Simulated scan of single mutants.
Amino acid sequence: MSAVSVTVIDDHPVVLAGVRAWFTAAGITVAAAGPDPAVAWTPPGRSADVVVIDLHLADRRPTAGAGAWDDIAALVAAGRRVVVYTMRDDRETALRCLEAGCATFLTKAEGEEHLVAAVLAAARDRPYVPPALAGAMSADETPDRPRLTDREREVLLAWFQCESKHLVAARCNLSPRTVEGYIDRVRVRYARAGRPAPTKASLVARALQDGLVALEDL
C-alpha cells in the first residue's frame, strides 16, 4: 500500500504540533491540519486517507447535540475514514462514535502508539480497538444479540482479519458473492434487532460487544 495520508482537526496548537510530529516519524503524511473541519473538504485535506478529529472543537461541543457530530456524520456519509481522538473517555461517547460509523475511538491519554496504529488500520479498512474502546465495548450489556451460525461467525472473523472480501473468499473456499451474502445476512440480523452496523468498524464493535469474536482474534 502507498504512503498513508491524514487530515487532523483539533483546535489546540500544541496537540496539532505533537500529532504532526508523531505521524511524520511514522511515515504518515499530514495532508492538512487545523481547528476547522473545513480543512477536510478542501485540497489537499479532501484526498487524505483518514480524518482524525477531536470532539471538543470551539463552537462544536458534542454536548450541544449537534456540532462535532454533524461534522462526523458528513464525513462518514462522504465515505471518509474517521478516527475520533478526544479527551472524553466515557462509554456512551465511545459507542456513539462507532454508531456514527467512525473507524475507531481513542482518548488522548492513549497517546502516540495507539493513534498511529489506529490511523494505519483505518487507512487499510482494518479494525483497531484501543484500550478505552475495548473497555467501553466490554461494558456494553445490550440484550439484543443476534444468533449466528458457525459458518457466519467464521466468515465474519475472516473478514475482520482480511483487507478484502476476495481474500476472505480464498481463505474460506467460497466465492466473493457468497462471502458478501454471509456478511449481508449478519447486517440484516443486527438491523432487525435495532442495532444497525452499516460499516465494518461498527460491525466489529457489535461482534465484540456480543462475544462473537475476542480482541485477541483481531
Rank of each mutant, 00 (worst) to 15 (best):
75 L>F: 03
111 G>K: 06
157 L>P: 08
53 I>Y: 01
152 E>A: 15
117 A>M: 05
79 G>L: 06
166 H>C: 01
82 V>R: 02
54 D>Y: 08
8 V>M: 10
169 A>D: 03
127 P>D: 02
162 C>F: 09
120 L>G: 07
216 E>Q: 07
200 K>D: 13
131 P>I: 07
143 P>I: 12
86 T>D: 02
186 V>F: 03
123 A>Q: 06
176 P>A: 10
36 D>C: 12
30 V>W: 05
188 V>S: 12
197 A>I: 14
151 R>P: 01
164 S>M: 06
133 L>F: 01
166 H>T: 14
190 Y>G: 07
16 L>G: 04
165 K>M: 14
74 A>Q: 12
17 A>C: 01
91 R>E: 15
7 T>G: 00
72 I>E: 05
116 V>I: 12
1 M>C: 03
183 I>T: 06
1 M>K: 02
85 Y>A: 03
216 E>L: 02
173 N>M: 07
81 R>L: 13
187 R>L: 07
73 A>T: 09
58 A>N: 10
203 L>G: 11
9 I>M: 05
143 P>Q: 11
168 V>A: 05
37 P>M: 02
140 D>W: 13
177 R>G: 01
163 E>K: 06
5 S>P: 08
191 A>V: 05
188 V>A: 15
81 R>K: 15
93 T>M: 02
71 D>I: 00
75 L>P: 03
185 R>A: 13
42 T>R: 14
105 F>D: 01
107 T>L: 09
127 P>S: 02
52 V>Y: 04
40 A>H: 08
137 M>D: 09
29 T>G: 08
130 P>A: 00
1 M>S: 10
151 R>Q: 14
218 L>T: 05
130 P>G: 08
145 R>F: 11
215 L>S: 00
101 G>F: 03
136 A>G: 02
79 G>N: 08
209 Q>E: 15
161 Q>E: 11
150 D>I: 06
145 R>T: 15
34 G>T: 04
25 A>Y: 00
86 T>W: 00
71 D>A: 13
67 G>Q: 06
24 T>R: 13
177 R>E: 06
169 A>T: 00
102 C>R: 11
2 S>Q: 09
116 V>W: 04
106 L>R: 04
95 L>I: 14
68 A>W: 09
75 L>M: 14
57 L>G: 12
5 S>M: 03
13 P>I: 08
15 V>I: 14
98 L>H: 04
202 S>G: 09
213 V>P: 00
4 V>F: 02
7 T>W: 05
120 L>K: 13
195 R>Y: 14
145 R>Y: 12
175 S>W: 01
126 R>F: 09
178 T>H: 06
216 E>K: 05
102 C>G: 04
98 L>N: 01
12 H>I: 12
129 V>C: 12
58 A>E: 14
28 I>A: 05
67 G>W: 09
67 G>F: 10
84 V>K: 00
100 A>W: 09
24 T>V: 08
26 A>Y: 02
208 L>R: 08
137 M>Q: 13
148 L>P: 12
77 A>M: 03
62 P>Q: 10
78 A>G: 11
84 V>M: 01
112 E>K: 12
198 P>W: 05
185 R>W: 00
183 I>N: 02
51 V>L: 10
115 L>Q: 00
137 M>A: 07
19 V>N: 03
85 Y>W: 13
11 D>W: 01
163 E>M: 08
95 L>E: 14
86 T>E: 01
8 V>N: 04
127 P>R: 07
70 D>M: 05
142 T>H: 13
149 T>W: 07
70 D>N: 12
182 Y>H: 15
191 A>Y: 11
